[in-house]
Amino acid sequence: MIRFDNVTKVYARGARPALDHVSLEIPRSEFCFLVGASGSGKSTMLSIVLREEHITAGKAFVLGADLSQMPQRRIPRFRRQIGSVFQDFRLLERKSVFDNVAFAMQVIGRPRHAIMRTVPDVLDLVGLAGKEKRSPHELSGGEQQRVAIARAVVNRPQILLADEPTGNLDPRTSEGIMAVLERVNQTGTTVVMATHDVGLVDQAQHRVVELVEGRVVRDEASGYYGREV
């Protein structure tokens, strides 16, 4: 599903690489944590998977496509198979919960009846049934992140990238979000989650990939946040 072969990413000439010869494979339906300090290369990795960043050296394959060979015009269609969630939710304030989720379908030209059918299902999946008409500012942080997850998965992506999705949330709310991500994962979606949340990682017992200064220093099938824990 996602394969990195010796991937190196350098943002500015002469600077320390953000990713340094990273090799990694994440199979279909896996739940994988990316852990490490800020600046260790977690976000860079997600950006590369989403084809927002070019790689400097090596090879990266996502969903069977060689990212360095992908022409510009193929990128939109490629991204429809990947959902993304961020720490800051990135909801549209002037749209209701329903419209925020529907937006992701509208802009790729899905028909109205498909939107009317799919959006309630997805809101149900993330536990927001009955809150369709609310505005984002009427929701708690956890609920806003659920809307963001609903938007990310409404087009049934094969991969969900989550960049510190619980970074702004308290531990209890974070567990709720984690549960939602688990549910998404159980529908067959590969989930890659970059996080600092020690508790969540330790509890979930999923694969953990630890990055330090752009290098993979640890890759455990069922691991903890840090070795010392």
Partner: peptide, 13 residues
């Protein structure tokens, strides 16, 4: 923000 989301979910140029 809108265009950012549009790019992320794969709206065409």
């Amino acid at each position: 923000r809108e265009t950012g989301i549009m790019r992320l979910v794969g709206a065409s140029n």
